[in-house]
Simulated scan of single mutants.
Amino acid sequence: MSYRISSHQTLSAETMPRVPNVSVVVFNKFSPFHLSIPSIVFGNDSLHESFFNLQFVAGEEGPILSDIGMEIHTKTTLESLAKADIIIVPYWRTIDERPNAQLIEALRLANKRGALMVGLCLGGYVLAYSGLLAGKRAATHWELEEDFTRRFPETSLDTNALYVEDNGVITSAGTAAGIDCCLYIFRKYYSSKIANRIARRMVVPPYRDGGQAQFIEQPIPITTSDSRINELMEKIRSDIGRKYTLDELANSVMMTRRTFTRKFHKATGMAFGEWLASERLNFAQDLLESTELNIDQIVAKTGFSSVFLFRDKFKQRYAVTPNRWRKTFHGRNCCGIRNLTT
């Protein structure tokens, strides 16, 4: 059974669940951008809290330099992968090169004991060379689909996916898809609210369409540069189930309807109706994950005018039904990690 913690609750050291260990494997000629993605998502700089134990592991002997002269110093070797809950290969220097035998063996052993294996962008090639994608679905950069299929015909490549999870192995498409993938992994261990906080701190675009759209967070503006709009947004969030009209809202901030519509869009980048629907869907998403409320009760709490409209909007946004979302994410508890909401 999973549980959630509200903002005024605390956990003692005795009751706090174990923090998962994340190992990021690094090699010579690394890509600073690809390496920064898991560093930001799983490190403690973004939220100033430790949700994961993050470490960098040398995937080979010798100096580890980027192509622009940056250098990584780590004394952590492949033996440490035996204690990792999540192993991320964030890149690979060339598609023609087979990884060293020691790394392949370490990855195979980790996969066998149940560690979550992740290949971001070309890191998927390392997992494929290690035999971890045989008989599985996978994703990769669209420019390399033909090459990947030719090299690894036993892998079923999903050419429409930003990322794919199949039996404990996750692969992502190129570059920015690694962000989506890492946020997805974050929510596998914790809640969508915390993952969304990471996304907002990273200034992730509000919408990410793709083959895995039902798993991709939809960050929306929390605050804007307009103080009156900010106050109004907070007021609406505190009573999201109410019906609102543009005339009422415009009067509440002493604007004409036309001025309010223009200023709201300028401040948030969204029309008011679009913003309100997004807020309601995010709230519904959290209720599906964290409560036992039925669909009628969720519709009442979130302010949708009917169950039919709610289901239609939810499916448009996440590409799955509310019931399917609940079955996927309600009470999720992977590797002994419990869902925490702050």
Rank of each mutant, 00 (worst) to 15 (best):
Y3A: 09
I5F: 01
T10P: 01
L11Q: 09
A13M: 14
M16K: 15
P17Q: 04
R18A: 15
V19S: 10
P20E: 10
P20R: 04
V24N: 01
N28V: 00
F33Q: 05
S36G: 13
P38Q: 14
G43M: 03
H48Y: 11
H48K: 07
E49N: 11
F51R: 04
L54M: 12
Q55L: 08
A58E: 01
G59V: 01
G59D: 03
D67K: 12
G69F: 00
E71G: 00
E71P: 00
I72C: 00
T76S: 13
L78N: 01
L78G: 00
L81T: 04
A84S: 12
A84K: 02
I87V: 11
W92C: 02
T94Q: 04
I95D: 12
I95L: 10
I95F: 06
R98W: 03
Q102C: 06
A106H: 10
A110K: 03
K112W: 03
R113V: 14
R113G: 13
M117G: 04
G119K: 04
C121D: 06
L122M: 15
L122K: 13
L122W: 15
G123S: 09
Y125K: 07
V126M: 06
Y129D: 09
S130W: 10
G135S: 15
K136I: 03
R137N: 15
A138C: 10
A138F: 08
W142G: 06
L144G: 06
L144T: 07
R151L: 07
P153Y: 15
T155G: 05
L157C: 05
D158H: 05
N160I: 06
A161M: 10
V164N: 09
V169W: 02
I170P: 06
T171K: 12
G178R: 04
D180P: 15
D180M: 11
C182A: 13
C182W: 05
Y184W: 11
F186C: 02
F186P: 02
K188W: 07
S192A: 07
R201P: 00
V203W: 05
R208Q: 12
G211P: 08
A213I: 12
Q214E: 11
F215W: 07
I222N: 14
R228H: 09
E231L: 06
M233Y: 09
E234V: 03
D239I: 15
I240G: 12
K243T: 14
L249S: 13
A250C: 07
A250N: 04
M255F: 11
R258I: 13
T259Q: 11
F260L: 13
A267I: 04
T268Q: 03
G269E: 10
M270G: 09
F272P: 10
F272W: 13
G273K: 06
A277V: 04
R280F: 07
L281C: 05
N282Y: 02
F283G: 02
E289S: 12
N294C: 15
Q297F: 04
Q297M: 12
I298K: 09
V299Q: 10
T302P: 02
G303L: 13
F304R: 01
K315M: 05
Y318Q: 00
A319H: 06
N323F: 13
N323Y: 11
R324H: 05
K327Q: 13
F329H: 14
F329D: 01
C334N: 02
C334M: 02
C334F: 02
I337E: 10
